[in-house]
Design a protein around this nucleic acid. Sequence first.
DNA 1: CGCTCTTTTGACGGTTGTCAAACACCGTGG
DNA 2: CCACGGTGTTTGACAACCGTCAAAAGAGCG
Lengths: 240, 240
Amino acid sequence: MTSNSIKVACSNCNLRELCMPVGLSAEQMERIDEIVATRRKIKRGSALFRNGETFTSLYAIRTGFFKTSIATEDGRDQVTGFQMAGEIIGLDGIVNDRHSCDAIALEDAEVCVMPYSTLEDLSREVTALQHHVHKVMSREIVREHGVMLLLGSMRAEERLAAFLLNLVQRLHARGFSQHELILRMTREEIGSYLGLKLETVSRTFSKFAEENIIEVKQRHVRILDTDKLQGLINTQACSA
Amino acid sequence: MTSNSIKVACSNCNLRELCMPVGLSAEQMERIDEIVATRRKIKRGSALFRNGETFTSLYAIRTGFFKTSIATEDGRDQVTGFQMAGEIIGLDGIVNDRHSCDAIALEDAEVCVMPYSTLEDLSREVTALQHHVHKVMSREIVREHGVMLLLGSMRAEERLAAFLLNLVQRLHARGFSQHELILRMTREEIGSYLGLKLETVSRTFSKFAEENIIEVKQRHVRILDTDKLQGLINTQACSA
DNA sequence: CGCTCTTTTGACGGTTGTCAAACACCGTGG
DNA sequence: CCACGGTGTTTGACAACCGTCAAAAGAGCG
């Protein structure tokens, strides 16, 4: 078990504005500190939780990078999202008291464990927290609408362009470069998320590189022309 | 404005077990009745809400049938779901205080208007309601995971089979036939939801009919062989 | 240093999209 | 009541995009 009991406090956490409501009073902040029971370290390749496991907690990612995916009996597998520091993971488990997807660390990671019962209790007392929990869930719903648009209406190039722009944008919000990123996932995982085969992902990377839109060296990607990438998404088929 | 002020009560509603928590005390039930401020009638083809409109309320569908869809500047359009009686609509609006999709009635409809502020206030007092709201949102997240699986990994036949089975299953839960249904949406809308062109949807319907899996007469569909439909989803590509 | 996993690239085929035409259905108005 | 127009649906022919299969090269790890 990769579990330990360091006592921690959101009030001192530099990711606070990503996971937690903003503009809290000192007293409210003190209450919020009760939420995170412990932290938990997850090794690269192992699971934070798995499909079917009993749901007990939501998790705020402190460091590291995760994928969530669902699998069917017939061997199909769909990556439903990639999550990074400051994002909340585990919302799928609330409805049936068990998780309905796997959350796998793509690099060594640490999460803040937030027992759901505590979260519920505290949401009843701290309105800002209640509202925040609702927003986090609503944001996830809206994010998934965007993925549906991508999967339902975009071609391979558009999908990959949207994917890259989304990643750098989120990384930029965390203080990283707007133009460089290291992919934590394989081509196959990107493909699964985007509804493409890994060969198509690889080919599309190569095509972007050939057109001087990006530079690709394995998992290291440098974006040379953000506008062109953006343009790939906005123009569909017809050039008029 | 299709708005009126009939005073209504969930406690007497026969859809109660679909929209509301179960196992409430009489006192709690009385509180719950405060949630629904009014009802609102929506004509076929008109919108319950539209992208960009200020978010004020969630809506429980009493009668009728809706689609939700998102549109992009470049003219893309993605149907993100079809909603029927007892289902909750409007969750997308919470995160930014404005709606991020359109909700269009596909037949004359009536919804219960649940002001979000009331819902928040009451959730703090009635634990069962708080939990219920969370579950409704989590259920939507899990549903969308399923759509991502469908869009990301299934072929046209599998998508349509999954779509039909999902529809009859939900209709059956509402007391309708397990084998017959009337489609409230066009082939184009089905296609948009499933990430297919309307011609492909039409062709796949014809193919199913030819194989005696279903009977199609315009929007009237009779399912002749549920097992075969189910089998289409479970077997992917390889026959071993 | 050798093994495995990942990635790249090529050739080919299949599924689905595109364009087009004809038909069916529905509501409207004569 | 019927004619009519518009919308929705079906079907065909063809093409494009992406998947499949295969092979080889590269990177990472013990």
